[in-house]
Structures are given as structure tokens and as C-alpha cells.
Design a protein around this nucleic acid. Structure first.
Lengths: 345, 345
DNA sequence: TTGTAGGCGTTATCAA
DNA sequence: TTGATAACGCCTACAA
């Protein structure tokens, strides 16, 4: 039987209103009674009841807008599943949610969506493009009391309410660590990166190279190329690389385009090449099953969606971030044996 | 603005009481009005408000008892952290929680604790010993309306409300898969298992051997021994094995006693040996850092605690299990690069 | 500066 | 078979 405002009021011989004013720092209360109430609250170990707050919060009619670069992007399906799980909670608090989707990473498009969201929403969940224009808008929204939670992408701006994404440098380092454990003394490595315009892809490459240089300076980095997350481009480039560098015995794919890279390797009959990649889309699952991809560094996509929404709801209702957020999003290693091929991650 | 009982009542021209009776199947309602109300509820997309239920549930004064074989067991510290996180929720619903701890795996001791818990609790979270006596008691409790959620250990009894633990066979297979990826053509493997009396430890060994036989039939399994999760025993046995089988180049440690095994390997100057283990206790972290343990298969200990408590609370209050439970507990692979050395897991 | 009262959605009790 | 009402804990508007 935890302490309630009512119990404290009775004990202090004042009304519930006064206790409420004290505990929520609303002012207009006699310093003496304030002190007395705080004392009693402490002694009784008062913590506000979440259900009570939740119920009362319903009248406020909060709105959350979500902006995602998710159109035609396989990876985001799971993120959206997680968002939906969080939206059931939003519903309980009478919070309305709008999901605004865009295709690709065009700054102007995202800026327009942010303008729209800024007009209606009390909080924004943003799959941010790392660009000064966006950073400006986010800062401006904050100054007008609209907080932003970034999701999946890292943004070079520290003043967001929360950043729900993986440490991409660690992701790259983890891929490198795996290669180090699987390769022998001779290593000729190719990096197939996504796009130089995406901060996370760059960070993965940085983490990967740093780790190799530190732990295996004898390894040879042959070349790196961009796939632009495009299957055809990835296929053609990988094919060329394999013929010009037949000594290649390891490939790190930072993001999309895995199907192209893997097909080139498969067709060349180079099952000996150690392929490490990121995420766990259907394509990745397929090639892990086939044994072409030896391991993948995944990033809890569903959880990212859920935690972002859950944190937004929680913040609006309770004025603070939930404990669950502080575990962070982790870089998880999956191989054939511990991968769940049924669920798409 | 989701539909509420009040809105449905207004629309149907009846009182909230009647709507409540229909939606919660309490009987005593005219079939015609029942049908009408169900129709309206469906049309309005009614889902009960969790905060409302939560608030009302407070008056019931539920009790949850937790029984853990956790005394002097490093691994359980994180499980208990998770339980505590879940207990904050229990508090909100006015649910009282008692944690009963025991040392080791004595069936009589656990049976006594179960008897005690059965008298006071509405639901039990049980770190079950897989023994017919325990299974009987759990079945008996169920028949008296007290549900059990097992935590961390697998129990050969399917009728529990939920089983919050990892797939141990998959855990062993994952360790085997990792070895296959790290070893070359020659493999002489030693298995250091915990205790034959612990179901999970056996299952890990089964999963490990099955996987090796299937994917690397050419590998050689030299021997296996029990550590009884005892550091000294593990050290002495491993030392012997190393001198009688110097060809050993891989060791799988299923559970406790890692410090003993690793020390023996370290002292023998055998840094070439590939060591794979389970969990992420401080000891494991230390040897991962040193590079003796190449990888460990972890089991989300904190999450196990949280999900067990959260599910119990959720079930008592809402009469069903939460969505979050269905992601399950996963076997996660950690190497030096993606391990969090600050937090103890 | 303080108290009162009504409402958020659900449940339970009592009266009709 | 149904309706009315109070309660759970918190918040807010208004009255004193």
C-alpha cells in the first residue's frame, strides 16, 4: 500500500490540493506547511501513481508526429512494427500519433515535414538527416517547447530529448572484431559501404578501420566502394573488384545492397570469402542461411521503434524519460545458429 | 480519442454498468441489449483503457512471491535488478512482492518455499528446479488458481503461465557455430560443463554436440568434465586435461567456473586456445577483455527479471500476458568490441 | 494561502 | 435485468 496524496493530506491535516501544490512545485503555499508536507511525503516514501497521472493526462489531447525516411526501405518495416506497439500505449493516454513518411534523404522534403509537424505536434520523433538545415529546425522547435526524439540515425546535435539509435562506430568495430576472429594471418579486405552521405554508414567504416588498424595492423585493406544501397550497382562493382583483386578473402558490407554483393560472390564460386554485414533484412537472412554471410551485426530495429514511441509518450505524460531507455540500443551479433529466420529484423 | 465505456453507454442509451457487464461477460443482461452493445463497441473500436483498469485494480491487494536460487550466485544480481525494475510497476498497481531466496538447488528447500508462497501469493515467479516434486506442486497450485511463471531455468512441464528463459539448446548450438567460424580444419575440443543436475547445462551440451556433428563432423571432441560451477575444481581438472591433451585447441565452458578454466589456460601460456563461454558475469568480462575468452553467448539476464515481473503484474491486472513477452529471451553473442564492460550482465 | 469539487475510465456495490 | 453511485490517484479550475 504505497503512499498517496490523499494519505499525506490526512496526515498533515491539510487538503489534497495543498499537497499537490507542494509536490508539484506550483507555488502559493506557506513555507511552513510546505516543509511539513515534504517531510511527511519523504517519511511515507511517496511516489506518484502512474495510473493516476495517466488517467488525468488524457484530457490534454497531446499529439506526436513521427517523420521517417521509410518509403521503399525494407529495414523500416520492423521499426514501424515497434512504433505501432508503442502506439497502443499512446492510445491509452489519449495521445494522437501521425506518421509522416518520405522517400530517400532529401533535406528540403524533411524540412517541410518538420514545419508541418511543428505546427500540430507536442513532440516529434524524427529519423533525422544529418544536415545543418535540419539541426536548425530541431533547435528552433526546442526553443518553442517542442522536443525531438531522433530515431535510427545519429545527428550531430546533442540537444535532442533522446537519441534512439545504435553506436555506429561500435557497429563497425564489432564487424572488424568478428573478422579478426575468423580470419587467419592473411587478410585482404574489401569494404562495400552504403552512402557517404549517411552519417551512420561513415561511422561504421571509421569504427571498422580503426579496429583493424589497432588489432590487426598486418591486415590489408584492398579497397572500398559505395553501393548507394543499390543492388545492381553493388553487384557490378563487386564483380569488378573480384576480378581485379582475386586475393580478396573478406568483405564488410556496411548497409544496403547486400543482395548485389552476395550474388557476385556466389556466382564467382568464392564461398571461401568471409562476408560480414549489418542488419537482418530478409535478404541478409537468406544469405546467412546459405552460408555466404557468416555473421551480421544487427541493431534491434523493432526495439528502436518501440523505445522511441514509449519514451515520447512517457515524457509527455510523466515529464521524464523512462528507465528502459537507458539500456540503449545494442549491436547484436547473429550467425546461423542464433538467428530467428521467421521474424524479420 | 479512443472509445470509452461511457461513450458506448450514451450511444446505446443504457448505463455504464450495463456496458461493463456485457464487455466483461458478467452475465445478467438482456440478450438484445447485449447484442446492441457489442455491436456499438465493435463499431467504435473499443479497447479498455489500461490506466483506468490499473487504478481500479489497486483495491484488490494482489501479492506476488518470487523464489530464486540466487544466494551466492553472481549471475542473479542482474536478474534481480530486472525484477526490481518490474516492481516499480507492481507498486503502481498496489501489488505487494516478496522475494524468497535460497542457496543451491535443493528440492526440499524449494518445495517448502513453494508451500509458503502458495498460501499467500496470487501468482508465483519461480526459478524452478526441474524435479517431479516441484512439477507436482506447480500443477497443484495451478489447480487452485495460483499461476506460476518460471524464470531462467527450463522445466519439463508445459502448463506454466509463461517461461521466461533462453533456449539452452540454441545457446549450445550458437557456441558451436562460433567455434566453427573461428577454427580452421583441425579442432580438438574440450567441454567444461556446469552440473549434470541442471537441465539447462545439459541442454547446452546437447545443442553444442549436435551442431558440431552436423556441421563439422571432422571435428574431434576430446573430453568433457563437470566444473560444478566451482572455480577450484574447474582449475584442477582443466590443468590435467591440458597436460594429458596438449592438442586441445578449443574449449566450451557451459556455465560457472570460468575463472578456474581460464586461469589454467592462461598459466599454461595457451593463448592460442579458442575459448567460448556463456553469460556475462564480471569474471567473463575480465577474460573477454584479456582476450582469453573470444566470445560469450549471453542471455539477457536483466530482461529476464523484468519480463517475468512485468508479465506477472500485467496478468493479474489485465488478465492476459503482455505483447513484449513474445519477443522472448535471446541468445546474444558478445565479443570484446560490442560488450559493455561497465554494466554487469 | 488554502480548500472544494469534478473529471479522467474502470470496477464494484447496492438499490430499483 | 438494469441504473446509480462511490471509489481508485491525480490534476485543475474556481471559490473562499
Amino acid at each position: 500500500m504505497p503512499a498517496t496524496i490523499k494519505m499525506i493530506a490526512e496526515r498533515a491535516g491539510v487538503s489534497r490540493g495543498t499537497v499537490d501544490r507542494v509536490l508539484n512545485h506550483r507555488g502559493n503555499v506557506n513555507p511552513d506547511t510546505e516543509k511539513k508536507i515534504l517531510d511527511i511525503a519523504r517519511k511515507m516514501g511517496y511516489t506518484p501513481n502512474q495510473a493516476g497521472i495517466a488517467l488525468a493526462a488524457r484530457k490534454k489531447g497531446y499529439i506526436i508526429d513521427v517523420i521517417l525516411c521509410s518509403v521503399e526501405n525494407e529495414f523500416f518495416e520492423e521499426v514501424i512494427n515497434g512504433l505501432r506497439r508503442g502506439m497502443q500505449e499512446a492510445d491509452n493516454f489519449g495521445i494522437r500519433v501521425n506518421i509522416l513518411e518520405m522517400k530517400g534523404y532529401d533535406v528540403i522534403t524533411q524540412a517541410d515535414l518538420l514545419d508541418k509537424a511543428g505546427k500540430e505536434a507536442d513532440l516529434i520523433i524524427l529519423n533525422a538527416i544529418n544536415d545543418p538545415v535540419i539541426i536548425d529546425k530541431v533547435a528552433d522547435l526546442k526553443s518553442r517547447g517542442v522536443e525531438t526524439i531522433t530515431i535510427n540515425t545519429s545527428l550531430e546535435y546533442d540537444d535532442v530529448l533522446a537519441a534512439v539509435c545504435v553506436d555506429y562506430v561500435e557497429s563497425g568495430a564489432t564487424a572488424a572484431g568478428l573478422m579478426g576472429l575468423m580470419l587467419g594471418d592473411v587478410a585482404n579486405i574489401v569494404i562495400a559501404m552504403g552512402s557517404k552521405n549517411v552519417l551512420g554508414h561513415n561511422e561504421r567504416v571509421v569504427g571498422f578501420i580503426e579496429n583493424i588498424k589497432k588489432r590487426h595492423p598486418e591486415y590489408n585493406l584492398i579497397t572500398s566502394f559505395e553501393t548507394k544501397d543499390d543492388v545492381e550497382l553493388a553487384y557490378n562493382t563487386m564483380k569488378e573488384v573480384l576480378s581485379s583483386h582475386p586475393e580478396t578473402n573478406a568483405v564488410y558490407i556496411t548497409s544496403g545492397g547486400q543482395r548485389g554483393v552476395c550474388r557476385a560472390i556466389e556466382e564467382a564460386g568464392r564461398k571461401d570469402i568471409i562476408v560480414i554485414t549489418s542488419d537482418g533484412t530478409r535478404t541478409v537472412q537468406e544469405y546467412v542461411k546459405k552460408g555466404i554471410i557468416r555473421a551480421t551485426v544487427m541493431q534491434e530495429a523493432e526495439k528502436q521503434g518501440y523505445e522511441a514511441m514509449h519514451s515520447g509518450v512517457y515524457y509527455l505524460v510523466y515529464g521524464e524519460l523512462p528507465d528502459s531507455l537507458f539500456g540503449g540500443i545494442r549491436n547484436e551479433i547473429y550467425i546461423q545458429e542464433n538467428m530467428r529466420f521467421d521474424t524479420f529484423i
